[in-house]
C-alpha cells in the first residue's frame, strides 16, 4: 500500500469513528426529545454515510484495485443527501419556490455533473447520484435566505466564488502547461478560502443550514481535488459532521424555547 492509500484508509477510519460518536449522540437526543422527526432523520442520514464509508473500506480490503462499477457506497451518500434534505425541509418556514434559486441550484449541479462525467466517464452514476445535490442545494439556499443567515452580499459572493471555481475547473480541460497549473492553483485557493469562510461561519452561527452548507461544500471540494488537497477537504468534511450535530441540537432547543414561550 502506498503512503497516500494508507492516509486514505486512516482518514476513513477516523471519519467512521466520528460518525459512530455522532450517531450515538443523536440516538440519545431521539430518546430524550419530544420532537422526534429531525434527530431521527439526521441519525438515518449519518447511518447511511457510515455504511457508505464501511462499504468503501470493505470493498478496498476484499477487492483491492478493482473498479467499482455501480456501488452501494454511492447509494449510501445519495441516501445521506436525500435524508438530510428531507429533515431540513421540515425546518423551512417559507417554502416559496423562487425561480432564481431553483435555476441556480439546477444549473450549478448540472455543471458539476458535467465535470464529474468528464473526469470519470461514468455518466449514469454521475447523473443519478448528482440529481439529489440540486435539491439539497435548493433547500440550503432557501433556508439561509429565509433565516437571513447570509446577507445579500455574502450570498452573491458565495455564488460568485463557487461559479468561479466551476468555470476555471472546466477551462483547465482545454489549456495546458503553466497556464493550466496557475488556473488550477487559483481554483484551489478559492475553494479552500470558501471552505474556511463557511467553517468559521458554522462555528459562529451554529445554524443547521449553515453547517450543512459547509458540509456540502467540503463534499464538492472532495470530488474536485486530487491528492493531497483531497485530504484537506476530507478533514473539513469530517469536522462538519459534529458541527451539524451541534447545530441540530441547537435547533431542537430553539423549538423548545418557542413552545415554552407559547405556553407562557
Amino acid at each position: 500500500m502506498s503512503d497516500f492509500a494508507n492516509i486514505e484508509v486512516l482518514s476513513t477510519v477516523l471519519q467512521v469513528v466520528v460518525l459512530v460518536v455522532v450517531i450515538a449522540k443523536t440516538n440519545r437526543l431521539i430518546i430524550n426529545e419530544k420532537s422526534f422527526f429531525l434527530p431521527f432523520f439526521f441519525a438515518l442520514a449519518m447511518a447511511s454515510f457510515f455504511l457508505s464509508d464501511v462499504y468503501w473500506f470493505v470493498y478496498d480490503v476484499l477487492k483491492p484495485d478493482t473498479r467499482m462499477p455501480i456501488a452501494a457506497n454511492e447509494f449510501g451518500e445519495c441516501a445521506m443527501i436525500l435524508l438530510l434534505s428531507a429533515g431540513l425541509e421540515t425546518l423551512l418556514t417559507d417554502k416559496k419556490k423562487v425561480a432564481g434559486e431553483i435555476v441556480y441550484a439546477v444549473l450549478y449541479t448540472a455543471a458539476n455533473i458535467a465535470l464529474w462525467i468528464v473526469w470519470t466517464g461514468e455518466w449514469l452514476q454521475d447523473i443519478l447520484f448528482g440529481i439529489p445535490y440540486a435539491y439539497f442545494l435548493w433547500v440550503l439556499i432557501r433556508g439561509m435566505r429565509t433565516r437571513e443567515m447570509m446577507g445579500r452580499k455574502e450570498l452573491f459572493m458565495a455564488m460568485a466564488m463557487s461559479i468561479f471555481v466551476l468555470i476555471n475547473l472546466s477551462a483547465v480541460c482545454f489549456v495546458d502547461g503553466i497556464v493550466r497549473e496557475f488556473v488550477v492553483q487559483l481554483c484551489y485557493v478559492t475553494m479552500f478560502t470558501m471552505m474556511v469562510w463557511l467553517g468559521v461561519k458554522s462555528f459562529r452561527r451554529m445554524d443547521f443550514f449553515v453547517t450543512s452548507t459547509f458540509f456540502l461544500w467540503t463534499n464538492l471540494a472532495m470530488f474536485a481535488t486530487p491528492v493531497p488537497y483531497y485530504y484537506v477537504s476530507f478533514i473539513g468534511n469530517t469536522v462538519a459532521l459534529p458541527l451539524m450535530l451541534l447545530s441540530m441540537k441547537k435547533e431542537l432547543l430553539t423549538d423548545k424555547e418557542i413552545v415554552a414561550h407559547d405556553l407562557c
Binding site: 442520514a45 447511511s48 455504511l51 462499504y55 452501494a72 457506497n73 447509494f75 436525500l82 435524508l83
Partner: peptide, 13 residues
C-alpha cells in the same frame, strides 16, 4: 426525497 433516501439506505445495507 424522503422515500428515495430510505430506499437508498436499504440498498446500501
Amino acid at each position: 426525497a424522503g422515500v428515495a433516501g430510505v430506499l437508498s439506505l436499504s440498498v446500501t445495507v
